[in-house]
Amino acid sequence: MEAEKGKTYKYLREKREVSEAAKENLKNFTRVKKSILEALKEGDMTIDQLAQKLNMPSSEVVYFLMTLIKYGFVQTGAIDDMDEYFSYKLKQ
C-alpha cells in the first residue's frame, strides 16, 4: 500500500494491531476526564471531595487532575485555612 503524506496512520493501521491495553487506556482516560469535568461544573472541589464523588482512590484523582491542569482544562483554586489542601476549578 502506497502511503499518502498526511494520512500515513492508515498505512500503519494495515500493518499493526492497536493493543487492547492501548484502547482500554484511552477509554479509561476519556471516562475519567468526563467525570472530573462534570463534577467541577457543580463548583470548586478538593481532591478528597472528587475522590468521594467519583469513588476513586485519591492518588488516581491527583494524577488525572494534574494532567487536566497540564492540558488546560482545570486550574488550581484557593488553599484551605490550614494551608493543606487546594481546591480545583474548571479553567475559564
Partner: peptide
Amino acid sequence: DIENCTLCGACEKVCPTKCIDFT
C-alpha cells in the same frame, strides 16, 4: 509513543509541516 498510540490520525491531520510519518 507507538505502544500507546491508537492510530487515530488526529496528530497527523493537524501537523502543519506534515512531518509525522507512520511509515
